[in-house]
Design a protein around this nucleic acid. Structure first.
Lengths: 212, 212
DNA sequence: CTACTTTTGTGAATCTTTTCACAAGCAACT
DNA sequence: AGTTGCTTGTGAAAAGATTCACAAAAGTAG
């Protein structure tokens, strides 16, 4: 039951949750830290340590009850509710995200979409109409969006980040390849494809001979 | 000049590289660890330690020469060359990736695209024709693809991962929300949007009151 | 009720990463 | 050439994360 939680622990919690969903579908009723570890590519001790940050959810000798632990993890991760999301940028990435199936399934509800292309403004995606970025503050406030997904080119990202934050957004998922400057109580998660690819090519290059 | 490089260091190297590109455009000739740190959201000591794993590239009293360090980092990350990429899955995510501008710019060359939808097979994207997943091994070998991007639904991902690896792919960028099982000399980078969103909602929930 | 099996929860030990702090190197100026 | 100002490169210290190892619970069987 500690204070500051490592980022790596949080990511593993997401993983455990995914494994628990699978186990539930397979009809499992209880699960041991050992099995959770195997599915999550980690160790049993790590699983127990991760969970112990938040309380003790298991029964000695038995393991964890699948559906109960699933509920606990959802609560811990803050996804036992719906999050209203503003999608900023209706380009390729924006539209791919909007259509991403896992997305709506898990309590993330896109309540607003913005773009600055006059061609796109006014079109509707599902229930949502694409609005001009000029109306951003207004619409974010009206819809009560709490999260923003920034899927815009790098030069526009910083300004838009500031604006969504000032309109009340509490966290940002950022696809632009820059480090956003926002108040430090506003968490930002970066998704950088280029960075992932570079990590890959580094790993491959390292593996095959020091300097080829 | 050490042995095993932390994953976090590699990600920061990507960041430094991005900052150096910006600096180059701004006409900077040299840069200090201090400035690189500021742009990369880290500390000067961290920058120097990161670089010191690979050699010593700076001049005391002066800093680093922008274009030289840029070249060194590109070499270290293994991106001073072109990587041939097979894109597996021509759905929403696949097509968004294919069109991603930063992507071709930086030495990643999509040499093959696969899908199993008969509607899509035979169409061409730019120079590349979408091929059936049945032809995967053949085409991967012929094109000499070294990296694969898996942008397919979870149930198909494991099998396709095995197949691209057996066809000679050396690393995988995986968008499917499962942990792929591949030989341990084949690096896999996972991009999980759901996990990123969960990390966000966790951070927000934590910040605002322990248990609301 | 006791012995036995299983598996958790957790302090202590180990390993990893980051931060500190400073000698050593380089350029500029006198 | 000597002095000054700046910034790197790096051991050593501190902080952080993971692994170990085992006592404490819980169920089961005799």
């Amino acid at each position: 039951m500690s204070r500051r939680i490592p980022e790596s622990t949080v990511r593993r919690l997401s993983h455990y949750l995914r494994s628990l969903e699978d186990l539930g579908r397979e009809g499992g009723y209880t699960v041991s830290s050992e099995e959770l570890a195997e599915r999550g590519q980690t160790t049993a001790a790590q699983v127990r340590k991760d969970l112990s940050h938040f309380g003790s959810f298991g029964k000695r000798g038995l393991g964890y009850q699948v559906d109960e632990l699933q509920g606990r993890l959802q609560h811990i991760l803050g996804i036992d509710r719906t999050w209203r999301v503003a999608l900023v940028g209706a380009g390729r990435i924006g539209s791919a995200l909007f259509a991403y199936p896992d997305f709506n399934v898990r309590g993330y509800d896109v309540v607003a979409v913005f773009d600055n292309d006059p061609e796109k403004i006014g079109r509707t995606w599902g229930e949502v109409t694409i609005r001009s970025a000029d109306e951003l503050e207004q619409v974010v406030r009206d819809t009560g969006a709490e999260l923003a997904i920034l899927a815009v080119p790098a030069p526009a990202a910083q300004e838009l980040a500031q604006r969504v934050v000032s309109a009340g957004v509490k966290g940002i998922l950022n696809f632009a390849p820059i480090r956003l400057r926002v108040p430090k109580d506003v968490p930002v998660e970066d998704v950088s494809l280029v960075m992932e690819l570079e990590a890959l090519s580094f790993a491959i290059t390292q593996a095959g001979g020091a300097d080829e």
